[in-house]
């Protein structure tokens, strides 16, 4: 990327337009189109992203439009956009809320695999308001999502892929992109994200196998079918992959029914088993007491 501004820890950045001062604490992210720093200003901690002018302007627009979603934003709150000017060169940046939490894949590292379902539910909670605002996430991948707070809410930390519905997806990653799996177009619609959400869930448990499936959808389905963990939600994951869902809320509802249905069935069978196992024990115990009583 041309004209990238590399800030140092402790450096003081002064906004050209607002005059606001930001002290750089450390780098917290770096991608193809920009660098994100944790900074402190008069308002406290915030995240600052340097990118080219076009990216800053378009991501600023995205963040602002997300805030119109019922007060709580699926992404970070936008604070302000500004420039740093050094030696006659302009480096545009914007300031957003700093979301403290772990990136999705880091979060899963020391968790049981069953957590992948909780994250899928949370992911659907995240997607629903975003889709209702007429946009889709586009580049849905663990690196772009953060798990934060005690309720494990999922929020986006990279806005680059967020696309208006009906247009072609702005940015994507092959592994989660339905077109790369030959399973649909790259048109921005809720089903595009729900496909990615499904692949992401499978990836949280079987990353290597999904990578090895190499875009062959049959192999992806075979992974779901043969996975003991994913069994619980297999029908939902498969239907999302086949493009059955075009609404995050419906998918969430069916996922909940599916998960609870399986669980109660399991419990029921276990209870039956335990009952049938207990009966002879109770019988033996009873006859023993009876025998003792009679012998007396």
């Amino acid at each position: 990327m041309k004209n990238r501004y590399e800030a140092m820890s402790g450096e003081l950045l002064i906004g050209k337009w607002t005059g606001h001062k930001w002290r750089v604490e450390r780098e917290i992210g770096r991608g193809e189109n920009g660098i994100v720093y944790l900074v402190t200003g008069t308002i406290g901690q915030a995240a600052l992203k340097f990118a080219d002018s076009a990216a800053v302007a378009s991501e600023t627009n995205t963040l602002k439009s997300l805030e119109r979603v019922r007060g709580a934003s699926p992404g970070p709150f936008f604070i302000e956009a500004d420039d740093v000017e050094k030696n006659g060169v302009i480096y545009p940046f914007y300031i957003m809320e700093y979301i403290d939490g772990l990136m999705l894949h880091t979060f899963m590292r020391n968790k049981k695999e069953e957590w992948s379902f909780i994250l899928l539910l949370r992911l659907l909670d995240f997607l629903e308001p975003l889709h209702n605002s007429g946009k889709i996430m586009g580049d849905l991948k663990p690196e772009n999502l953060i798990v934060s707070g005690p309720t494990h809410m999922i929020r986006a930390v990279d806005m680059g892929g967020i696309t208006k519905q009906g247009r072609s997806v702005k940015e994507y990653t092959t592994l989660y992109d339905r077109a790369s799996w030959h399973s649909g177009t790259r048109e921005a619609e809720p089903a595009y994200d729900l496909f990615a959400a499904s692949v992401l869930t499978i990836t949280l448990v079987h990353k290597k196998e999904v990578q090895e499936a190499d875009g062959q959808i049959e192999r992806l389905i075979a992974i779901i079918e043969s996975s003991p963990v994913l069994q619980l939600a297999a029908p939902i994951l498969q239907q999302a992959i086949s493009g059955h869902y075009n609404c995050a809320k419906t998918m969430k509802k069916e996922l909940l029914i599916c998960l609870s249905g399986k669980k109660t069935m399991k419990l029921r069978t276990r209870r039956k088993k335990s009952k049938s196992k207990k009966w002879p024990v109770v019988l033996v115990f009873f006859t023993f007491i009876l025998m003792v009583f009679l012998l007396h």
Partner: peptide, 12 residues
């Protein structure tokens, strides 16, 4: 880039 950031948003 010489326009204020708010104007750039409209252009974007």
């Amino acid at each position: 880039e010489s326009l204020p950031p708010e104007k750039r948003g409209k252009i974007a």
